[in-house]
Structures are given as structure tokens and as C-alpha cells.
Amino acid sequence: MKNEDIVICRCSDVTLADLYELFEQGYDNFEELKRIARVGMGPCQGNTCAKMIQWEIAKYFDRPLEACAIKNIRPFTMGVKLQAIKEAAEDED
């Protein structure tokens, strides 16, 4: 299988081959992978990649899926322009 042709994160263009390389370097959880490879930080906010990454972590490091769940979710769920937030704050004043 050509892991470089298996796309895991469409938003940040991260392939399974990229993921394996990061695993080998010791990045073994979603939070760290997010910071180093920007997975889950694009427009879909992890809705496409997170489950696949959880599965790949479990398989590669031989851990139960439950131990690889993605827990940290923060606002926002989508891109919001600063302009829009500024205008909302002005409306409130």
C-alpha cells in the first residue's frame, strides 16, 4: 500500500505516511500531532481525520481505542472573522 497516497487530514494535507513518520518520532497522541502537523485545525475541525487518527494510534502503539479518544474540544467549531466578533461586541455596548 502506498501510504503517501492515503490522505488522513484533508484540511492540512497530512497522509498516513506523514503520520507514521511522526509516530516514529514519538508523537503518540492527538494533541501533540495537532500541534506539530495541524491535523484537526482546518475547516472541518477534526470531524474527518480525528477518528482515523485515533484508529491509527491504537493500531500502531497497540493500545485500546478507548485510550486514544480525543477529548479536548474548544470554541470555535468553525472559522469566525474577528470583524464579526468586534461588531457583535459593539452592538452589545
Binding site: 500500500m1 502506498k2 497516497d5 492515503i6 490522505v7 488522513i8 484533508r10 498516513l16 470531524n47 474527518t48 481525520c49 477518528k51 482515523m52 491509527e56
Partner: peptide
């Protein structure tokens, strides 16, 4: 819910 994706060659 959202749909699960699947990793396979040329899945993009």
C-alpha cells in the same frame, strides 16, 4: 452525527 471517513489509497 457526522460520517466516518476511511483511509485507503487515493481516498482524496
Amino acid at each position: 452525527a457526522s460520517e466516518k471517513a476511511l483511509p485507503f489509497e487515493n481516498n482524496d
